[in-house]
Design a protein around this nucleic acid. Structure first.
Length: 114
DNA sequence: TTAGTGACTGCAT
DNA sequence: CATGCAGCCACTA
């Protein structure tokens, strides 16, 4: 453990909170902006904890690289997420995936050093 | 500090 | 084209 255990997670929460209405992002993308491009898994865990911790972040706008929803057993939460995204205008195909090229969010600010 | 875990991802079968 | 497998990283006990 380090002295600052809220470094990465805080950045992730902040970045996710910056995702605008009607847009989506991927775990890997969030991880990249947070500073660790390979920490997509950790981002997923943080999102799962965000619900438990009651973090006010649009966790439903974070999906996997395929443009789909990762439920890992929690089908109820998955349906909720799909419903929320659909309500925001994100269209899901029969394969339960949306077109990332069309709905992916690209931040206009630079997060890394600069 | 060590070990275990998972809402990921890309490459190989 | 659909599965399987092995890295990678941060968090928790």
């Amino acid at each position: 453990m380090s002295k600052k255990d809220g470094d990465f997670s805080d950045r992730v929460y902040w970045i996710v909170s910056q995702i605008p209405f009607g847009c989506v992002s991927t775990y890997g993308q969030i991880a990249t902006y947070a500073g660790s491009a390979r920490a997509a898994r950790a981002v997923g865990n943080l999102m799962r904890q965000s619900l438990k911790n009651g973090q006010e972040v649009p966790w439903h706008r974070v999906i996997n690289s395929r443009g789909g929803i990762s439920s890992k057993g929690d089908t109820e939460r998955a349906e909720l997420q799909r419903r929320l995204l659909t309500a925001e205008g994100v269209e899901f195909g029969a394969n339960q995936c949306c077109e990332l090229d069309r709905f992916r969010w690209t931040p206009q600010e630079v997060f890394w050093d600069g």
